[in-house]
Design a protein around this nucleic acid. Structure first.
Lengths: 193, 193
DNA sequence: ATTGCATGTCAACATCCGTTGGCCTACGGT
DNA sequence: ACCGTAGGCCAACGGATGTTGACATGCAAT
């Protein structure tokens, strides 16, 4: 422990590590897991492919590091219950437009089992936990969270992956207006008979 | 034209072609486009990889043949307007469970541009056409169809690809009950301000 | 100044992939 | 019975990919 008494002293290669991670996220988001090659990522980051192996061990390890993600869901207990749906869609849409990590994860989850597992974790843990904070019936929270995930992921899939023209061209605010009632019902609606 | 006067006389290799196509659909559905190798498909069909090339030209050509698909949407004009949503979810769910072609297309669409293009065609053409048969405002039909696609594809993505536990465990009838009102509103609901 | 270690480069290996061309076999029309 | 041709198999090529190891370089502590 030489200069600063931090638990992890800053390494000289941090810039390189960050460049690799940034390039990896771009490539994974644009091409998916298998088409995104280590060589292409290294070229983008202007370093040698072997550095990727040194710092992240393997392609799987690189993806695991690049796909680290937090939904950053707001505290739903401080949201008026009638606006839960609207708040959620707006949050997801903003989170998706601002960070390509989720697109990378979404693309990779279709073919890579590890990515699917990670996606399952994110939505089963973070989203379910958020729904549980205000839910009444614990037996239904998982199902409500799953339904919300189905609509939110469907929105992302059609807008960012398949790029269905109507979903790409529609303004975010209009999407929010259409989809918010759906999430609202999934979250607080009475379950069907 | 020996026996029957059909325009395309049956070839002796039809059984092989069908075996290849069946194996291809399975592999594409299970592994996605890039992980599904021609060698593995040929092994499943118990033939030589070169036969795939002879009959389908290339891997792209094989996929194009294996991903041929028709949604077989029912005639929506003969459906009571209040039940449009329910009829549609039920139809999609049945179509998805009964034919793995759609799963193959869905998986491949994440990474393969051609598959995404095909998916765009299916939903932009077939679904939009079906919605247009009863729609009142032509300017809105594309958007309504896109919203329906977002929920339906999200359902498929979470249930068959990511395999989110709540979406996998829930019975089809209960999913129909939850999701039908969503499609109903996307199809016939009044647009937001 | 010298040593040690992190950083980076270069070349190569082993494997797998899509694809190709040559060759054998057996059916079907004559 | 004969022969053309379609069906099928085998071996190989060219290229790409993940991964590895040996070797250079430069910073930092002694």
């Amino acid at each position: 422990m030489t200069p600063s008494a931090q638990s992890t002293q800053p390494r000289r290669s941090d810039a390189t590590r960050a460049a690799i991670l940034r390039a990896a996220r771009e490539r994974f988001a644009a091409d998916g897991y298998e088409r995104a090659t280590i060589r292409a990522i290294a070229a983008d980051a202007q370093i040698d492919p072997s550095m990727v192996m040194r710092y992240y061990g393997s392609k799987e390890g690189l993806f695991a590091a690049a796909a680290e993600f937090d939904l950053r869901l707001p505290d739903l207990t401080s949201v008026p219950p009638a606006q839960l749906g609207e708040v959620l869609v707006r949050h997801f849409l903003a989170r998706w437009e601002g960070d390509e990590t989720l697109v990378a994860l979404l693309r990779a989850a279709s073919t890579n089992p590890g990515a699917a597992e990670r996606m399952r974790g994110i939505f089963a843990d973070q989203l379910t936990a958020a729904v549980a904070t205000f839910g009444t019936d614990p037996a239904l929270t998982a199902r409500r969270a799953g339904l919300v995930a189905s609509q939110v992921l469907g929105l992302a899939f059609t807008r960012y992956i398949v790029r269905l023209p109507p979903m790409v061209d529609t303004a975010p605010e209009e999407l929010v207006a259409w989809i918010a009632p759906t999430l609202q019902r999934y979250l607080t609606g009475t379950p069907p008979s």
